[in-house]
């Protein structure tokens, strides 16, 4: 594990040099949040309305938190870079190093997120408190309790995105699959909480990565309960184990297909 810690630390230090670039990304985040504040303002109409059991403030905070996970983890390392390593042949130089390629990519990804996510979290808190107001019943202990779920959620997200990128061993461009996976997460888990969908579909969504990546962590911050906490944590551990097994399996199969053309 020590070698991955070294990779993580070096990427973390590197990312700290580019905080100004990361801060430029706040523009897109602010615009999205701005649109959703207006949208939900319009949808709620009169004060005191509940939609799917959520108050207006809870709904906007939910979107802000899921978008925070979305923007705070929007790194090319597990998507474009991994695909390009495979397509461009760079993987030939990386696979014979004394580390596992997939874990190397994940260590880099977590290093980048360690800088991005806190920066976006600070901006979210600032906008939320000034434009929406504080969440009723929210306590700092909730944030500390939900932190492992947030970290597990972003790791699961990275593992699944890396699995898709590893498809580049077979297909030239894995991007179209990334689009579909991203939209599944975005439309079903990020823009709305699961409760807004028809009851018949909700158990189905709980089986998808949406539940562990964005809905679970955000729901815990909005409306914490010990039962929910245990449920989300158990689902995340299972999902992470299954995702990692899938990732190693695809990588193991993929490298056997690798052709080295010299150079």
């Amino acid at each position: 594990m020590k070698k991955y810690a070294v990779i993580y630390r070096s990427v973390l230090i590197e990312s700290l040099q580019y905080t100004a670039n990361i801060a430029m990304g706040f523009i897109s985040y602010l615009i999205i949040i701005f649109i959703f504040i207006h949208l939900w303002d319009y949808m709620y109409g009169t004060p005191g309305t509940l939609i799917a059991g959520y108050t207006k403030e809870q709904m906007i905070w939910y979107v802000m938190l899921t978008e925070l996970i979305w923007f705070g983890t929007s790194s090319n390392t597990v998507t474009r870079q991994a695909s390009m390593d495979i397509r461009g042949g760079n993987i030939a130089y990386l696979m014979n190093k004394p580390y596992h390629y997939t874990l190397y990519i994940l260590a880099r990804y977590i290093g980048e997120c360690s800088v991005r996510l806190p920066m976006y979290a600070a901006v979210s808190a600032l906008i939320g408190l000034t434009m929406v107001g504080s969440l009723a019943g929210f306590r700092l202990i909730t944030l500390l309790a939900a932190l492992p779920c947030i970290l597990l959620g972003i790791t699961i997200h990275a593992v699944f995105r890396l699995c898709i990128s590893l498809l580049s061993f077979w297909i030239e461009d894995a991007n179209p699959f990334h689009w579909l996976y991203n939209k599944l997460i975005l439309v079903i888990g990020t823009i709305f909480p699961i409760e807004i969908f028809p009851e018949a579909l909700q158990p189905l969504f709980k089986l998808t990565p949406i539940y562990t990546v964005c809905y679970g962590p955000a729901k815990l911050l909005i409306d914490f309960s010990v039962e929910k906490y245990a449920e989300v944590l158990a689902a995340q551990v299972l999902y992470l184990a299954a995702g990692c097994a899938l990732m190693f399996f695809i990588y193991g199969k993929g490298v056997k297909k690798l052709y080295v053309n010299g150079g």
Binding site: E172, P176, F177, W179, L180
Partner: peptide, 21 residues
């Protein structure tokens, strides 16, 4: 051709997911 067609088809599907929203 496969990548070309996949890109076009999946982009259309990608947009269509927003109908759900």
């Amino acid at each position: 051709k496969v990548t070309f067609l996949t890109n076009i088809l999946f982009m259309a599907l990608n947009n269509a997911t927003f109908i759900v929203q």
